[in-house]
Amino acid sequence: MLLCNRTFCGEVVTVAGTYSSHEHFVPVGEDDDHEAVTDYSYIPYSIRPAPLMIEEPKGLNAEVRTHLRKAYDLFWTDLASCANRLRIVVEYLLDQLGVPREAVKGNRKSVRLDLAERASLLAVARPGHEKTLTALRYVGNAGSHEAKGEFEDIMDCFDLLEDVLKELIDRRSEKLEEKADRIIASKGRPKPRTGEADGN
């Protein structure tokens, strides 16, 4: 059992796992004396509730957030399942962004779109995220269909997901560009007060 020591938190977390120990000797004093020291390595297999892996935008809806929190849990127990859950997060993220799950195709029947097709639709309205979504989809597919998940790949996917959430939900780059445009428009000068002339 672990207890968070952050002020105003104190959350209790359960951790299960294994450990190994390694004993070695370190010099003590100036008489060639040595002292035995034991180092421990801990490998967690489960952490509940799991720590947040990324910063979550405030505008993220409940469905996306729920699946993201499940991905945090699965990270410690099953990397392949975590990869699959990250793929599900992308599906629900596209839902939040209004990307349809179905479309009418040539025979005028409504057909279900796969994740690649949905990502392509998003690329028309919000370009610039195709590589990130493709990477998340590939890792998710490997977890879903091949029961494979690599630690480094999953960590990279969390980084990629954090960035794409900030862009698509918080619109970080757009907001920064708006700030730059405002400063450029004013030539870096403060807004004039009421009654003051705005000189060039």
Rank of each mutant, 00 (worst) to 15 (best):
L52H: 07
A16V: 11
M155Q: 14
T66Y: 10
A16H: 13
I183K: 12
H24M: 07
E11C: 09
V139A: 06
E152P: 03
D181Q: 07
L93C: 02
L86E: 00
L94N: 08
N200C: 15
T77D: 06
G199L: 14
R48T: 10
A71F: 05
V104R: 09
G128D: 10
F158T: 03
R108T: 00
T14W: 10
A135L: 10
A36M: 08
N5H: 00
L115A: 10
V37C: 06
K179F: 11
D170A: 12
R193H: 12
L97A: 13
P57L: 01
A119Q: 00
E177L: 15
I47W: 12
V26N: 10
I43A: 14
R189N: 09
R172A: 09
A125K: 15
N200K: 15
A83E: 02
N84K: 02
R65N: 02
S120R: 02
Y45P: 01
R6A: 07
G106C: 09
N141W: 00
A80W: 01
D181L: 04
S144V: 06
N61Y: 04
L86Q: 00
N141Y: 03
I184M: 09
E162H: 07
L161M: 03
N200L: 15
R118Q: 10
P127Y: 01
A62N: 12
E63M: 13
R112V: 12
A180Q: 04
V64Y: 02
R118A: 08
R189K: 15
I154N: 05
G29Q: 04
G195V: 07
L161A: 01
N61D: 04
G10V: 06
D73F: 15
A83T: 08
L68M: 04
G98A: 06
K131A: 09
N84H: 05
R171S: 14
L60H: 02
L121N: 08
L122A: 10
E102T: 13
R126Y: 01
A16E: 09
H145P: 05
H67N: 07
